[in-house]
Simulated scan of single mutants.
Amino acid sequence: MISKRIGVVESIITNSEDIDEIKVKIGERVDKAINYPKITGSVNVGDEVLLNTSAIELNLGTGGSHFVIANLNNLESNMTDGGHIMKLRYTPLQVKTFAAEEQESIHHNKINNFKSLNNLPVAVGTLHSMLSPFVAVAKRLDPSKKIAYIMTDGAALPIYLSKNVKELKDKKLIDATITIGNAFGGDYECVNIYTALIVAKEVIKADIVFVSMGPGIVGTGTKYGFSGIEQGYILDAVVSLGGKAIAIPRISFADKRDRHIGISHHSITVLKDIVKSRVTIPINVQDEYKKKRIISQIEDSNIHCLHDVTFVQNDITKDSLDYFDLKVKSMGRGYHEDEEFFKSSGGAATYILEGLI
Rank of each mutant, 00 (worst) to 15 (best):
G27D: 06
E57D: 09
M151P: 14
A247I: 06
I198V: 15
I268W: 01
N112H: 10
G185S: 04
S212R: 00
R333I: 02
K329A: 04
S330L: 02
K32D: 07
V309R: 12
I251Y: 12
H66M: 09
D273I: 09
A176D: 01
I208E: 05
L168E: 03
V43S: 05
I357S: 03
A348H: 01
E339P: 15
N284R: 00
G228Y: 13
I111R: 10
P215S: 05
Y149Q: 11
S296W: 06
K329Q: 06
E102C: 01
V68L: 06
I6Y: 12
F311P: 05
P158S: 05
K96D: 09
G346N: 04
I246R: 04
L120Y: 13
I6T: 15
K32C: 04
L168D: 07
A349M: 04
I281P: 12
N112E: 05
V203K: 09
G355T: 03
D319I: 14
K223I: 12
E21G: 07
L60F: 07
S16Y: 11
Y224W: 10
V285S: 03
T220Q: 08
V95I: 09
R29E: 01
V45L: 11
Y224N: 11
A100V: 03
A183Q: 01
D47H: 12
Y90F: 14
R5G: 02
T126P: 00
N15R: 15
I283K: 00
M151H: 02
I352W: 06
S42G: 01
I147K: 07
A156V: 08
N314C: 01
E76D: 13
Y233T: 12
K205D: 14
L356N: 00
S116G: 11
K25L: 08
V49A: 02
P143M: 03
G225P: 00
G83N: 13
N119M: 05
G225E: 04
N71V: 13
T80E: 11
P121E: 13
R140V: 02
S16E: 06
N302A: 15
K145M: 12
L353I: 11
A247L: 05
D308P: 01
R278V: 12
Y188H: 07
A55D: 04
T280A: 08
I234D: 03
G219K: 14
D287V: 10
N302Q: 14
S296N: 14
I19R: 12
